[in-house]
Design a binder for these strands. Sequence first.
DNA 1: AGTATCTCGATCGGTTTGGTAGGCAATGCT
DNA 2: AGCATTGCCTACCAAACCGATCGAGATACT
Lengths: 151, 151
Amino acid sequence: MQISARADYAVRALLVLASHDPETTKSDVLAESQHLPKKFLEAILADCRRGGLLLSQRGAEGGYRLARPAAEIAIGDVIRAVDGPLAGVRGARPETAGYDGEAANLQTVWVALRASVRSVLDEVTLADVVRGELPDHVRTLAGSPGAWSSR
Amino acid sequence: MQISARADYAVRALLVLASHDPETTKSDVLAESQHLPKKFLEAILADCRRGGLLLSQRGAEGGYRLARPAAEIAIGDVIRAVDGPLAGVRGARPETAGYDGEAANLQTVWVALRASVRSVLDEVTLADVVRGELPDHVRTLAGSPGAWSSR
DNA sequence: AGTATCTCGATCGGTTTGGTAGGCAATGCT
DNA sequence: AGCATTGCCTACCAAACCGATCGAGATACT
């Protein structure tokens, strides 16, 4: 249940792109404005391009731009592009589990967990984060007691 | 956002222990009844013991048993015992992020995500899963449209 | 004491992760 | 045409992690 460096960097870079929409921005600018390792970021941006989130332009005056409006790209889309499926059990999808005995109902828990994760990551878009206006559902979660303290 | 083999195995073993409560059960039985690699499971059970979830008895007639009633051990407790914090960003806690610029509000998203994960894993206990009676909140999530299909 | 169990600590090989380096391909400017 | 700029691909590397195992230490029974 960890957000990898790839996912974190990808989201941050796309947030910068979203705020510069629709002009193209070069990777240098993205890396410096969020203090990300340049070459590593390039590899991540390539994943986003292959995932259909980004368009790229080579050569001088080149750079990247969003393939869709920022309001139509969810955080979950970005994570899926760089890390694969949002949630899984031992590398596989929760619905393909096949537990028996006392663990028979465990599958339902994992499915509920995935649904819960999706309810956050698939509802928040890049535009939401840039504008600082998160969906009510997400604001409620972040404002619930103990949300900001470790456990 | 993956459930590791350690976490999956740990939960399944503790579910068996919960159903045998309060008698001690040896790792052999746990491994066979859920088809888990025996020696690997032992290492995982040791983590649970150090985490205060299990009591162990060495030697002949030894085995493991729950340190608390099954209704007072949440799935989240088990995962924390074997994998550390439930949710984090690049190995650190979400609240220690320190984003700036366009990503300033991203921290709130990660905190909401963690709260969402906790709302499932910290509300479901071992006893719930064994009895097949999950909290309403979790049943609603698992029953929501699309919860059982991949994306 | 001896022995059969059973847990515990250390270890190990392979994969993934985070990050770097260099060369090639495409584009625009002069 | 020639050159500077910028993305793209392959390879490489160290460190961490993951799944799994071996040998030793603790306990109970005879």
